[in-house]
């Protein structure tokens, strides 16, 4: 996935400025950076939810605006941070929507198989017939991921999926995403607020600040005190524990 000279202006403020980026395939890439850095905006443009002012975004060699929306939906899936669905649906019904780009609602044998597989992959087998409004935040987030998995795309984009999840659910979700990359060869791009999650689970990190990409490298190169201090304008201690880097950013 290539991003070339992409910019976006909101009310005279350039939230994304001429971003150039080449994301590695079959890797988990985390976007980090302070609030208002333009991470979510960039992700929305990468998934055609938001129109870009200028620049090009290519996936598998083609610019995203040249795709028919239905065709793009078979290649790339996006999950935004706030999904308030006020509908009474069962878990299985919601996951089934993931097959919409393929069958437009008339589900085939193959669709049913992939839906059950997605449910199973996220450990939702015994929740499948429950209604989504009865679920906890963590369970619901898993249902959305299952839907996206049923969508069977090469690229999966997630905008702050850990919001409102407790530590256990958050770690569980990151492990699932890790498995999607390692076992299924998906390319996962995720916006994260907690840099420790990025440090523990991401292959590569893109650090953004004020609408620009300031670093893009493998995780070990970005999780470094000088880099993070400058990025967040804070005093961040980086320490190593059990072979992983951790950042301590509470003010002393």
């Amino acid at each position: 996935m290539y991003i070339q000279n992409v910019s976006k202006t909101y009310r005279q403020k350039e939230v994304v400025q001429e971003v150039n980026l080449k994301l590695s395939e079959h890797k988990l890439t985390a976007f980090i950076g302070p609030n208002g850095a333009g991470k979510s905006t960039l992700l929305s443009m990468m998934s055609r939810l938001l129109e870009k002012d200028c620049g090009d975004i290519y996936i598998s060699g083609n610019e995203i605006t040249t795709f028919k929306s239905k065709e793009l939906a078979k290649k790339l899936a996006i999950l935004k941070q706030s999904n308030q669905i006020d509908l009474v649906l069962t878990v299985r019904e919601l996951v089934s929507f993931g097959r919409f780009p393929y069958s437009q609602g008339r589900l085939t044998e193959e669709d049913h198989r992939l839906i059950e597989e997605a449910l199973h992959y996220l450990g939702l087998d015994n929740l499948a017939d429950r209604q989504i409004n009865e679920l906890s935040g963590g369970q619901l987030q898993r249902v959305y991921i299952a839907m996206i998995l049923a969508q069977d795309t090469d690229y999966i984009l997630l905008d702050e999926p850990l919001n409102n999840l407790d530590m256990s659910y958050a770690a569980q979700l990151m492990k699932v995403l890790r498995r999607l990359v390692d076992e299924k060869g998906k390319t996962v791009v995720i916006v994260l607020h907690d840099i420790n999650f990025a440090s523990s689970y991401a292959d590569e990190i893109v650090a953004m600040k004020a609408g620009q990409v300031v670093y893009h490298d493998i995780t070990e190169q970005v999780i470094q005190k000088p880099v993070l201090d400058e990025l967040y304008e804070m005093n961040i201690q980086v320490c190593e524990l059990a072979g992983k880097r951790f950042c301590l950013y509470f003010n002393e």
Partner: peptide, 20 residues
């Protein structure tokens, strides 16, 4: 009915699923 239900998921999810 099916596309209408998909649009009921909200704009972002509906577009993600390739709905016009």
């Amino acid at each position: 009915a099916y596309p209408l239900t998909v649009s009921g998921l909200g704009e972002d999810l509906a577009i993600n699923l390739g709905l016009n």
